[in-house]
């Protein structure tokens, strides 16, 4: 464990908590892409199947349980509890166009052709594009509530911090995992446009308005 990975995990935790609180407190999931949340639930389910087979540390196990529980809770809040506030007119990204290529790529490029490893690889590829429905929805509505942009900033920072973690681990432990690194870079790059808007607008107290 290193400071980059720890702050990355904490940023990830913060993002999930911000989103849950926003939906719970405002009793509304307006502006939130349910499709992205479904993709995240799939990502954690396919990645954390080893929860029952391998024990890494208490921290690792607790975080996996939290990510799994919170992702399903978020999907439940969006599609069941507050479904009246779900904006399905703007949440129209075709997630099958993200899931299928991730499946195919996981079957072609992986570290080992075993069920657990293929599922892990699929989850890494899917996570790198899982935010696209949300970013697409923000571009369609042309704006995002500031709480939603804080959520996106924390979520985008988490994998950016993981990139620093991978550099650190390569330098210090000569450990690297190209699949995670390439997917992590793609994932972080997808947020760049949003990061620019967040830093130039939201931090100045303005609303996140995309040029319509």
């Amino acid at each position: 464990m290193n400071i980059f990975r720890l702050t990355g995990d904490l940023a990830h935790l913060l993002a999930i908590i911000i989103l849950l609180l926003k939906i719970w407190k405002t009793r509304s999931c307006a502006g939130i892409s349910g499709k992205s949340q479904i993709l995240f639930a799939i990502v954690y389910t396919t990645r954390y199947l080893d929860l029952v087979t391998t024990y890494v540390s208490a921290y690792n196990t607790l975080m996996k349980i939290f990510f799994l529980g919170s992702s399903f809770a978020t999907v439940y809040l969006i599609y069941v509890k507050f479904k009246a506030t779900y904006d399905h007119n703007h949440d129209t990204f075709r997630i099958e166009f993200l899931i299928l290529p991730a499946v195919i790529l996981a079957l072609l490029i992986n570290h080992a052709f075993t069920p657990l490893e293929i599922l892990w690889t699929f989850s890494i590829y899917l996570e790198s594009v899982a935010i696209l429905p949300q970013l697409f929805m923000v571009s369609k509505t042309g704006e995002a509530e500031s709480i939603t942009s804080h959520y996106l900033f924390a979520l985008g920072s988490y994998r950016g911090l993981y990139i620093l973690n991978w550099i650190y681990r390569y330098a210090m432990e000569s450990h690297y995992d190209l699949i995670a690194i390439v997917a992590g870079i793609v994932q972080t790059v997808l947020y760049c446009d949003f990061f620019y808007l967040y830093i130039t607008k939201v931090l100045k107290g303005k609303k996140l308005q995309l040029p319509a």
Binding site: D9, M63, N165, S174, Y176
Partner: peptide, 10 residues
């Protein structure tokens, strides 16, 4: 450097 098989990251 070796590539990680068992994944210790979240």
């Amino acid at each position: 450097p070796q590539v990680e098989e068992n994944h210790d990251e979240l």
